[in-house]
């Protein structure tokens, strides 16, 4: 589904990703862990097409297509989803209008008919129940005045609405209390299928108690320095990142 080969990316002339390779297959959950500043969020930003970053080397293939050639909107339309670390508040754009526009643009891209108003509202209702978010959140402007937890739940709600094939959760657990964390994790688990995949980016192991990964990768200084099964997350939780830093110091 996703093939990353030797990906290098920089911002303001500084290289942040220094040769990342990763292979994600349908049905898999990959966790990417690492100390602050290791390049985790940069990887998410580069994959979704944030123009602040410049890809200097490498390639990314998504469902057989060259991902790096696509605009951010085309990546989303092809089935890529990013749960933002810092969801943006957009006063004046209602959640309903936002979701209807996004969903219908994606449907048009796939040659599907746009949803009727009643079908759309039904879908909203179903997905709201699925991810357990408060009804009134969708009556408001996009993320406006939402608490940190509400914003993250809203990201998962959008993920449910858009039904992507590959979701990247960028530090979705940061700043979440345990109840919100459980809601977010439940949502992700319910959306899991054999034909979609998830990349969970996190600093802490806690989220991985709820979303159990098939693979754990440790990112350090822009490279994946260690890959293993879910037990690696536990090891990092116990030992911290210092042993990684020592082992892979340049």
């Amino acid at each position: 589904m996703l093939k990353i080969k030797d990906l290098h990316a920089m911002i303001d002339g500084k290289e942040i990703l220094r040769g990342i390779s990763l292979d994600v297959k349908p049905g898999e959950i990959h966790a990417i862990m690492g100390p602050n500043g290791s390049g985790k969020s940069t990887l998410a930003a580069v994959l979704t097409g944030n123009e602040a970053f410049e890809v200097s080397e490498g390639m990314v293939e998504f469902n057989g297509k060259d991902l790096l050639e696509m605009s951010p909107e085309d990546r989303a339309r092809e089935g890529l989803f990013l749960s933002f670390q810092y969801p943006v508040e957009i006063p004046g754009v209602s959640m309903t209008n936002f979701m209807r526009t996004a969903l219908n643009e994606q449907r048009k891209h796939r040659g599907q008919e746009v949803l009727s108003a009643s079908d759309f509202l039904k879908l909203m209702r179903d997905k709201k129940n699925l991810v357990e978010i408060d009804s009134d959140l969708t009556n408001r402007s996009v993320n406006e005045g939402f608490s940190g937890g509400e914003k993250k739940k809203n990201e998962i709600f959008q993920m449910a609405m858009l039904d992507p094939t590959l979701s990247i959760l960028d530090e979705t657990d940061s700043g979440l209390d345990i109840d919100a964390l459980r809601v977010v994790a439940n949502g992700v688990n319910k959306l899991r299928r054999s034909d979609n995949a998830t990349i969970v980016i996190t600093h802490y192991q806690r989220l991985l108690d709820y979303i159990v990964p098939d693979y754990v990768h440790v990112l350090y200084k822009g490279r994946i320095v260690k890959s293993a099964g879910k037990e690696l997350a536990q090891e990092l939780e116990e030992k911290g990142y210092d042993w990684i830093k020592k082992e892979f110091e340049d």
Partner: peptide
């Protein structure tokens, strides 16, 4: 960018 990342054209 947030809007585009949801598939809404520029």
């Amino acid at each position: 960018f947030y809007l585009r990342a949801r598939g809404i054209g520029k």
